[in-house]
């Protein structure tokens, strides 16, 4: 069946089995592979995308349930060659090792920053608890989210 997915501001018409996950449609049909498979049960956060502005586990979201709603993937955060402040903050803090969790971390962190413009470490831990970094860069990710909050307040990236 055909559905319309609104991904990163573009409409994609996809002919697909409605039971397929959003994750698989993004990766396999739209070749948006920045969104990762990590566990298939919503436990690791590697597949996080923003659905209607809220962080969602694309591995557990049927593609059909996402139809018509705005979807943001990691590929959509960069605007006109300028990184999202949190992307930049990840680079500045070197908040990654293997980088496999990074897309999901950045989207979960960006969603937090939309709701909370100056998150404290406890807010970040609470919001990011469902995202796993097996390399253990958690302290750097917390630091990156706080630096991004500070630079967004200063208006450096708006």
């Amino acid at each position: 069946m055909q559905i319309e997915l609104l991904v990163n501001g573009r409409i994609h018409r996809v002919d697909t089995d409605l039971e397929r996950s959003l994750l698989n449609v993004l990766r396999e049909d739209l070749d948006l592979t920045g969104t990762k498979y990590g566990c298939g049960e919503g436990e690791c956060g590697a597949c996080t995308v923003l659905l209607d502005g809220q962080p969602a586990r694309s591995c557990l979201t049927p593609a059909n349930a996402a139809a018509g709603k705005p979807i943001t993937t990691i590929e959509g955060l960069e605007k006109d060659g300028a990184l999202h402040p949190l992307q930049q903050a990840f680079l500045d803090a070197d908040a990654l090792q293997c980088g496999y969790c990074t897309s999901g971390m950045i989207l979960a962190g960006a969603a937090l920053l939309q709701k909370n413009s100056s998150p404290q470490p406890d807010d970040i831990i609470h919001a990011m608890q469902g995202n796993i970094c097996r390399c253990g860069t958690y302290p750097r990710i917390i630091h990156a989210i706080q630096s991004a909050a500070a630079s967004m307040k200063r208006g450096e990236h708006v």
């Binding site: 590929e75 990184l83 680079l91 990654l96």
Partner: peptide
């Protein structure tokens, strides 16, 4: 020195 190709990872461009 930060990860040399870090930008490819924070933008999702890197292909695993």
């Amino acid at each position: 020195l930060a990860k040399v190709d870090g930008r490819d990872f924070v933008t999702g461009k890197h292909r695993f």
